[in-house]
Deep mutational scan, measured.
Amino acid sequence: NSASGPLPDGWEQAMTQDGEIYYINHKNKTTSWLDPRLDPRFAMNQR
Rank of each mutant, 00 (worst) to 15 (best):
N1M: 08
N1V: 09
N1T: 10
S2Q: 13
S2W: 02
S2L: 08
A3D: 12
A3S: 12
A3F: 13
A3C: 11
A3E: 11
S4T: 12
S4E: 11
S4Q: 11
S4V: 08
G5K: 09
G5H: 06
G5L: 09
G5N: 11
P6I: 08
P6Q: 10
P8A: 06
D9P: 06
D9V: 06
G10T: 06
G10V: 03
W11R: 01
W11M: 03
W11L: 01
E12K: 09
Q13R: 09
Q13A: 09
Q13N: 05
A14R: 10
T16Q: 02
T16D: 01
Q17V: 10
Q17L: 09
Q17M: 11
D18H: 11
D18F: 06
G19R: 06
G19C: 03
G19A: 04
I21H: 09
I21Y: 08
Y22H: 02
Y22C: 02
Y22T: 01
Y23C: 00
Y23F: 13
Y23A: 00
I24D: 00
N25F: 02
N25Y: 04
H26Y: 13
N28F: 15
N28M: 15
N28W: 15
N28S: 09
K29W: 04
K29R: 14
K29E: 06
T30D: 02
T31V: 01
T31F: 01
T31G: 01
S32Q: 03
S32C: 05
S32N: 02
W33R: 04
L34S: 09
L34F: 13
L34P: 01
P36E: 00
P36I: 01
P36M: 03
P36R: 00
R37A: 04
R37P: 00
L38V: 14
L38C: 15
L38A: 14
L38Q: 13
D39I: 14
P40E: 14
P40V: 13
P40S: 14
P40H: 12
R41C: 15
R41Y: 15
R41P: 15
R41G: 13
F42V: 14
F42A: 11
F42G: 13
F42S: 13
A43Q: 11
A43S: 13
A43V: 12
M44E: 04
M44I: 12
M44A: 10
N45D: 07
Q46L: 08
Q46H: 12
R47M: 07
R47D: 14
R47W: 06
